[in-house]
Amino acid sequence: MRKLLVIFSVFLYVFKGYPQDIDKSLKYEMKILERLVIDITGKKYPKVFFDGVGENKIRMIIRFTTIKMVNNISKADFVFIKNKTRKYNAIKPTIALDFASVKNCDFCIGVFSWRNGRPILILFKENLQKFDIVLPKEYKYYIESKKYIVGKK
């Protein structure tokens, strides 16, 4: 009986705080990002370089999507940036994870953020063409000219 109690306590300790079910919004975001990167790169396990993205966010993306993180931007298929500046100038299709980063990002093909509790994704027509990226027609709704976005938050 005592053994059983010990085993049960250990079990409870090990699984304490284990995320049995991640937040619905986060799940929703991960689903969108995964789908977007796969559709853009055409790869099932795309390699992504994170520029200025918070550690928590990266951990979640790696854990709940098929996206693989690379530490060398030259090896990446894709880049996520956040926090206004893009440190590396390698020519890779990039998605900004905030509106502020879009303005000075020449390689940004779009922006993904949250507004009024809803995810917002806008893809830039000009930059998609620049990278010869052709997306399925479901993305039509999200494709806009970058001019509309610059200056807005």
């Binding site: 507004r115 009024n116 809803r118 995810p119 917002i120 994704l121 806008i122 709704y141 999200y142 806009e144 509309y148 976005i149 807005k152 938050k153």
Partner: peptide, 25 residues
């Protein structure tokens, strides 16, 4: 396509910004 006219939440003026409804919306 749905676009913002007024958003009371931010100080910015988001007029014409694309509004992306949730799939259930």
């Amino acid at each position: 396509r749905y676009r913002y006219l007024i958003d009371t939440k931010t100080s910015e003026d988001p007029v014409n910004l694309l509004f992306i409804p949730l799939s259930e919306e």
